[in-house]
Each structure stands twice: as C-alpha cells, then as structure tokens.
Design a protein around this nucleic acid. Structure first.
Lengths: 110, 110
DNA sequence: CTCCATATATATAAATAAATATATATACAA
DNA sequence: TTGTATATATATTTATTTATATATATGGAG
C-alpha cells in the first residue's frame, strides 16, 4: 500500500500527464520541440483560434510543462524540460508497437 | 501545419496519455512495474473497491497499456510495453525538477 | 499623456466527457 | 449449483472543452 506522500506525488504526476491528454496540446508541445515559438505563430501553424492556443498554453504553463518569455508585445513559449520530449517519444514508440501488434493480429485473420 | 495522418497519430497518443491522467491508474501501473498482478491483489494493495480497479484496468487494456492473462478463475495483468515505465519515470524526473525549481523560487522570498 | 493597433489572456456559458458508487452479470472451478 | 474472481451497466456527480466575447499588456503615433 502506497503512503500518503506517494499518493500526493502520483496525483501531481497524473496532473502533468493530463496536460498530454489532448491532441492539440500534444501538437503544441511538438511544435516546441526544436525551440520557442510565439502564441500567434502556433495558432497559425496549427490552424487553431488564438483563444484556444492561449488557453491550452495556460494549462501547460500552470503544470510547468512550458515556460513563457515576454519580448515586447510578443510572448515566446518553450518547453520547460527537454525530458518532456523524450517522454513523448517513448509514448510514440509504445503506440507504434501497439499498432504493429494489431496489424499482426489483423493479418492472422486474412 | 500537421497533416491529417499526423493529427490522427497525435489523437491516438493523446488517448494513451489520457490513461496516465488519473492517479489510481498510475498507482496500478506502478504496481505492475516489476511483474504481473491479479485484479484482487491490486485492489487489496491499493485499498480500492474491486469494481474501480477492474474498470480502470479495462481502460488501460483498451488503450493497449496493460495486457490480461487468464489463469483459471484469476486474471493477471501486466504492462504491455516496458517503455511505459521509462516514460513514467521521465515524467517523475520532470516533476521533481519542477518541484525543485519552485522550492528555489520560494527560497528566494524567505 | 492619450489614443490606437496588435498580441495575448481570461471569463463565462453551453456542450461533452469522465469518475464514482452501486448493483448486477459473467466466467470458471469444485 | 455454489462460491470466488472479475467485468460491466447505469445513474449521478464532477470536470473538461469549446466558442464567443471581452479584458489586459505593450509599443508607437500624434
């Protein structure tokens, strides 16, 4: 049985993972892979309304996933920790493995 | 701008990440770190009702995160891919970094 | 300094999805 | 058929997403 403290940590982890549970946020994170980008720039690239991008960035920001930097009228966002990309890439691999397995399974019925 | 196919992949990734966005499911995943466990065993260890554990396992199973193995009356669950643990550990590190930063920040105001 | 334009953030309401508790169903072995 | 382990259904509560509108922050012109 986990201790209270462990449970608290798992709750924090769950909250961080929750920020990865929306594809638009994953798209945003992916855009920040190679460096910082402005809010409007993200909205343009992803063809999403500014308010949506800003809202999602706020969520990511509150959970410490991204960090803003204001430069005059613009705000640049970057990933707070590069390990976030590593984690996303691992999930990508797991997903591909799973899809490959499904494919195999499907093939057996052809 | 991402392609339709890319967006589909990100949606699948988001769905998988969504399974990590609940602390009970993270507790379950953590229990499976070193090998398979039965449903009732998990319920006992985590002090959760059987129906809840079974339901959460069903979610994880549907997204390919865990795999069941029936042995008579019992069902053993294991992680489908060990990379899941690596990903969770990365999130753990990111979280610790973040907490450390907050601590630093807090210290500056003491 | 005031007014305006631009970039970003937030508030709110409506729609949608998820979690929980409780009850019930299924699967298997004796 | 009975007991044990696991799974599912449903209703209720609670949280999340989206769209729309509005607010704030900053820099520049006059």
């Amino acid at each position: 049985m986990p201790t209270e403290r462990e449970i608290e940590l798992f709750k924090l982890k769950a909250e961080m993972c929750k920020t990865f549970s929306d594809y638009k946020r994953l798209l945003i994170i992916n855009q920040l892979r190679y460096g910082e980008k402005q809010v409007g720039e993200l909205a343009d690239i992803l063809k999403l309304p500014q308010a949506i991008v800003s809202r999602q960035l706020a969520l990511l920001r509150n959970k410490g996933v991204v960090t803003p930097r204001r430069e005059g009228i613009n705000v640049f966002y970057r990933l707070t920790d590069e390990k976030i990309i590593e984690a996303c890439d691992l999930v990508h691999e797991v997903l591909l493995n799973r899809l490959a397995k499904n494919r195999e399974q499907a093939d057996r019925y052809l």
